[in-house]
Computed example of a mutant assay.
Amino acid sequence: MHVALGGTFDPVHDGHRRLFERAFEIGDVTVGLTSDDLAAQTRHVDRFVRSFDARKADLERELESIAEKYDRDYEVRKLESPTGIATEPQFDVLVVSPETQETGRRINDIREERGHDPLDIEVVDHVRAEDDDIISSTRIVQGEIDEHGTLTPDSDGRDPK
């Protein structure tokens, strides 16, 4: 099986790690990492996002050990559009979080238009922080929590530049 998933992953946190684990349980993984332009367009909250190269280096460090654990291959590719790589015919499964499930449906519509089989869409639940809200990169950047969901009341968050 060939699995696709995508995101900005800045910073990587336990919710992302759950997505990665599930993807590698299923098969070999291709991660679409948003380009610098797309990362800015897909933010629900205006915040600083590190460069593609910096995010890719951190992402590859995360993926390496998980891929090794499952004896799987992986690749990181640049995403230039929200539907990105998953519309390509070689993929079998798309791993998404609850808020990106609709994008998965749009991807399958595009695949159908192109004559490709639909992807199985695997929805992975959020990981909760110790305050029972979801772990998100935005909350980490704003200084509310760390990458594991621990509250960080003394943190000012990431420098906005």
Score class of each variant (00 low, 15 high):
M1Q: 13
A4Y: 04
L5K: 07
F9L: 08
F9S: 02
D10K: 06
H13K: 02
R17L: 15
R17C: 03
L19N: 00
L19G: 03
L19K: 01
R22V: 13
A23Y: 03
F24M: 09
E25N: 11
I26G: 06
I26R: 05
G27S: 12
D28T: 07
D28F: 07
V29R: 03
V31R: 01
A39S: 15
T42Y: 07
H44F: 09
F52C: 04
F52W: 12
A54P: 00
K56C: 10
E60R: 11
R61A: 13
L63F: 08
E64H: 08
S65Q: 15
E68H: 11
K69F: 13
Y70Q: 02
R72K: 15
R72T: 10
Y74S: 05
V76W: 14
R77F: 08
K78W: 07
S81Y: 06
T83Y: 12
A86I: 09
F91W: 08
V93K: 12
V96M: 07
S97L: 06
E102H: 13
T103Q: 14
R106P: 01
R106Y: 10
D109V: 11
E112V: 09
R114I: 01
D120V: 09
E122F: 04
V123A: 10
R128D: 13
D132L: 11
I134L: 11
I135R: 01
S137P: 04
S137D: 05
T138D: 11
I140F: 05
V141P: 00
H148M: 07
L151F: 03
P160A: 14
K161A: 13
